[in-house]
Amino acid sequence: MVFNSEMAMETEDRRPKVTMEEYKIKENPNDYGFSDETFDREKFKKNLQIIPVKRVDYELEFDIIGLTPAIANAFRRVMISEVPTMAIEKVHIYNNTSIIQDEVLAHRIGLIPLKADPRLFEYKLDEKDEEGNELDTLEYRLDIKCSWKNKDVKDPRNIDAMYKNHNVYTEHIKWVPRGKQGTLFNESQVGPCDDKILISKMRPGHELNLKLLAIKGIGKDHAKFSPVSLASYKLLPEIKLLKQITGKDAYTLQKCFSPGVIEIDKGGCAYVKDARYDNCSRNVYRHPEIAKFVELTRIRNHFVFNVESLGAYKPEDIFVEAVKILKKKCVELLKELDFDGK
């Protein structure tokens, strides 16, 4: 029987797992986590696998297998808060007659993601230096005024015909090159990531005249410096059917999981097609009679990473940068330890 041979194969599976029970996540009774393992570099090297899975636009999915959660989490944390980006930090307001308050406007502008590659800039170290220099600061101008386009239009729904510049978008931000910056970059390389981010709405007579200064910073300081909109992992889910489920129950079972997870073969028998993209909603437990024959587990050392870049980096670069930063931290720590020892 096919079913049995599969079972036999499964029993050979020595991967560490946690079980998702109805009310809690249960660890395997003879799994002590990774606490009693001594770190063996060779073994680590042998077990470690990094598999890129999917890359769409700015989104990247990849698997890391054979890692402790501490290290996987360190990558995640560094990606969120320690990979630097450029973001607008100082807003000089020469004129703001729009209804948005100066502080709120500055806050909104600060959150605009910039395309500028932070690797090409330095951290601004001198706090007192307001303006910064060409190596650490990017300068932009936002100079826009709303005016009447056609005063005869009375229909309030047709505001586009009525006013000019009544919506201020990121596309209105103009880069002002400093020093040699003009020769190194062009506007499309350092400007905002998206042209159509709405900054403010205005009416005739409203005017904005701003100088924006962007510097390099990290997400720990402010979320605007974070290069990712998402950097996270989940443990690879695994679903096991302990008994053949057929007929009506098979369809109920299928519904309890994300689409594509459970399929039904010609014989009307449910089988697990691919548990990878299951939401882990555990909705089978709504049907106790079926749930008895379903085992929901997750592989403890198989991390499915998802990274979504905001645009400053390619997502894979963010991971590489994160690894570099982590490495640098480790080197620094080792140095400290060495120093202390001697």
Binding site: Y23, I25, K26, P69
Partner: peptide, 9 residues
């Protein structure tokens, strides 16, 4: 902080 799944949902 630890990166491990929480026991409770």
């Amino acid at each position: 902080i630890t990166g491990e799944p929480l026991e409770a949902y």
